[in-house]
Amino acid sequence: MTGSDPQLLESIAVGDVLPTLVVDVTPTTVVLGALASRDWRPMHHDHKFAVERNGVADIFLNTPNQAAWFERFLTDWTGPAGRVGRMTFRMRDSVFPGDAMTFSGTVVSVGTDDVGCGWVEIDVELRAANPERGERLCSTCTARVAVPVDADDNPWSRNGERWRP
């Protein structure tokens, strides 16, 4: 990750593209993510249940784990001083074992709020590709991430009225 070189607000511009993240998804990826998030629902670990009950191709990535992947993608770029304030994502298709999932992101706004916190808004796409299923747009996400306005700033120090995610 790029945590040793944190992003400062002044170095970020609309249109900046985040480094792409590509992950080969295995059954372990799906099951590990589900159990890490204490999601015991069978469609995330039981192939037969997913296919026969949910009517999908295989077990699939669960929602909290997908959020965690988005967080990882964003903070790989910001470094540890980056603080995610908000993320909204829509899951259009599922991510299955055998997929190569690719996260890509573009900065769509940069600014400071009324209390001086630096905010970056990023549009993220999660695509999955598989020889059998082709390439699909699986999820779209909009994230609002606080980054330091300068080397002395720390978004994590904000709370109460000074933190407006």
Partner: peptide, 16 residues
């Protein structure tokens, strides 16, 4: 430990 499980599941090395 649950945070580390999530970090491991997403290969997230954030030093925070």
């Amino acid at each position: 430990s649950y945070s580390w499980d999530t970090l491991a599941a997403t290969q997230n090395g954030n030093p925070l």
